[in-house]
Design a binder for these strands. Structure first.
Lengths: 217, 217
DNA sequence: ACTTTCTAAACTGTATACAAAATACTTTCT
DNA sequence: AGAAAGTATTTTGTATACAGTTTAGAAAGT
């Protein structure tokens, strides 16, 4: 493999943004919790400036919300709001599954299968954090299979935004295993290369996901 | 109507962000053009700090793109990329039309009709900028009719992102009038309250929109 | 004890200075 | 003339200071 161009060094602000995204997605910061510029600056060994930039970018992406007069908070949604988000996500994911089913190729199939193998491994090991990452990668592989980076980006954003709520349904090793198993049915539907089957399969998956997240929250 | 809570005063960074969004959406800044912190700071009578914040937020929203090593640019898409964006937008808009058709109520109908009246007025007057605003408001009214702010937000983002490319198809008064007329068919389909009709109508509208944008770019 | 007013502390947004990195331009060498 | 090295300029990211706004807590008044 040819070496890639030299990657620009990640700025402090980017580093902070990434770290916060991961924590929030993993549900490590509770909904409604306020993020404090000054203590984050201390924690990351930086000044307020890059912290402010990271927080501002995350509000622009809807990952965080700005208080009315002050403060930046991890978004906290009512049951109604949560169902609206899942509805939107549900529609996007169904579109992705439909398009992916139409566009499967050797690479995308392999990527989905490899990602699923990682999910299974993490679930068997009872590795909660590892499973969250592997689950993320699994869904990303489906998004990539659409061959449309913009669809993939939208879907990823929703996946990230619902991360904190979905993370709570993975309480035990048994939950992880059940989740990994549900992926198998989904893969079968997508690999059928039939749009309607894929779309329907994803809708079922998302409905189950939502129900479980409701129960756990 | 009861007075709303006092709105927080808009920061300089927010002001700059809004102004840039409008200009970019209206196609006033060419794709590929670099935005320069220093001259923007001069132009807005501010320091680099709020300019950087605005630019950073706009890159986080995908409205602008970061150069590999330096610079922030108005996104420039290849024909292939443009078709991918429109494809994603097409899917989102069709979902919105479908959901809106299922959820119409007196308020949403009125809003759509009022927005269309504004489109017609702007088109008849040959008011290019006014038409862009009215067109934006028309689509926003449809998104709002979904009753799902998250669907609406995604759709609005795509609408905004494709603004520069779509703006170019509104070259003459005749183009504005044709666009406003195409809205009528779309309204009829959505107001049919039939999901499939609404979805199909929106797909037609988006296909025509894309073809026209291709021709004009 | 409760309410109002005042004060101090915390938070927010911005300007400015500084240093490092990237790029453009000029000079020197082959 | 073309390439390499050196220099100057521009751009980027960050730290810090400052001023304005908001909030919390203390003091005074009823």
């Amino acid at each position: 493999m040819k070496a890639e161009k030299t990657e620009p060094r990640q700025s402090t602000a980017q580093r902070i943004e990434q770290a916060l995204i991961e924590e929030i997605s993993a549900g490590e910061v509770s909904p409604g919790q306020r993020l404090d510029e000054v203590s984050l600056a201390t924690r990351f060994g930086a000044s307020r400036t890059p912290v402010r930039e990271a927080l501002s970018r995350l509000t622009a992406q809807g990952v965080l919300v700005q208080g009315e007069r002050r403060g930046v908070f991890v978004a906290e949604y009512s049951r109604k709001e949560l169902s609206q988000i899942f509805e939107a996500m549900h529609e996007i994911e169904a579109c992705c599954a439909r398009i992916a089913a139409q566009r499967l190729n050797l690479l995308s199939r392999s990527e989905i299968e490899a990602a699923q193998a990682d999910c299974v491994a993490a679930a068997e090991a009872g590795d909660h954090v590892g499973y969250l990452r592997a689950n993320e990668a699994f869904h990303s592989a489906i998004y990539r299979a659409t061959g449309n980076p913009y669809m993939a980006e939208i879907a990823s954003e929703f996946h990230r935004r619902t991360g904190p709520f979905r993370a709570k349904k993975f309480g035990s090793r048994k939950d992880l295993i059940a989740s990994a198993e549900s992926h198998q049915a989904l893969i079968r539907d997508i690999f059928s290369e039939d749009s309607a089957t894929a779309s329907k399969g994803m809708r079922s998956h998302m409905t189950a996901s939502f129900m479980q997240a409701l129960k756990a929250n």
